[in-house]
Nucleic acid binder design. Sequence first.
DNA 1: CCTACCGATCGGTAGG
DNA 2: CCTACCGATCGGTAGG
Lengths: 203, 203
Amino acid sequence: MSMQKAPGPVAVEEPNRRTEIVRAAGRLFHAKGYSATTIRDIAGAVAMRSGSPFYHFKTKHDMLRAVVLEGMGAINAAVALAANSGKSPRATFEAMLRAHLGQLLGAEGRDFAATLLHESRHLDHEAQAEVVALKDDFEAMWQKALRDLKRAGLIADDSHLARLFLLGALNWTVQWYRPDGSKSIAQIARQLANFVIGKPRRP
Amino acid sequence: MSMQKAPGPVAVEEPNRRTEIVRAAGRLFHAKGYSATTIRDIAGAVAMRSGSPFYHFKTKHDMLRAVVLEGMGAINAAVALAANSGKSPRATFEAMLRAHLGQLLGAEGRDFAATLLHESRHLDHEAQAEVVALKDDFEAMWQKALRDLKRAGLIADDSHLARLFLLGALNWTVQWYRPDGSKSIAQIARQLANFVIGKPRRP
DNA sequence: CCTACCGATCGGTAGG
DNA sequence: CCTACCGATCGGTAGG
């Protein structure tokens, strides 16, 4: 939309200063929150002067929108991939947990995901509607996963409330997970699967 | 500490303007976040001029501290009461869930609790340490409840991770619960108990 | 993308 | 608790 037009004074060489801004914004929004993050913080993080980010984004709000949509898109894609892996209901479920946690806690995605979870309320109605549309698909995938588990006799409750409990357990990991802690993402996913399903047993 | 001294120009009559400020601050911190909430917002909410809240609190940060400690104290007290009710492990557990959700979602406590959950990071190290100290007790209560459930043969996993999953499911309710929704707090507590334990069956 | 800048707003204070 | 105010900072813009 507002990328390069004609080669300006500097510009062009780096293909994606815009992406760097989004990444820096995500890091800062996650660390300090949207409202407490300053345009000058973001500009400084990518070695720009305070007016320059506005060459790439019209407003600070638009930066938040870019971060949040990036987060929603990434987690959606990751979980969808796991959901369609064609494994058994239990293995599929655990793969989805791993994918979700990977985005939430992994180095590549966590700033976007955390900003999605905690700063979306600062979006205007229009942008929030964009997020909700994507979130609907996302939640449907989880609902289906629970339905499949129930059909396989592995859980007793596949209601909407059950999905909300599950997503709560998942999303809350952001609050306590430490990359240098004693549990890996895969271990957490495994244990959450056991927590929800019970230890695997032969039928 | 900085209450009334001698009867100033106005003051005195209302015993607790300070409490009103804390309540208004909680409401606003919950609705807009700490950083996006202005001293002028808070002052306006209690019909004061912008300089007057500083008669009761030295800084905006101190208001946040008061809100968060109020939230932590209230949820701690409510859950402790349920934990010591002397019922069976299952009934005690469900009562604790109800108490926790009551603070998180009920009209009296939710602004404090939500501010505790989402704005504590804006506290300085000292105030954060105060919160952590109270949180340690709180988490120990939940850990004990899980231990009792396991001893009673009702759950398989009473690890720290299980406690974190449970508290995630609980605390995430703030994100989706609507007072005018179809489920009451007691119903949500009951269903979460079933989700964790499984439907009640005779041994 | 930088320089230079603007109007608005913010947390907080002095002095009563 | 109000009036009057201050210095600092903020998001954003013009003009190159």
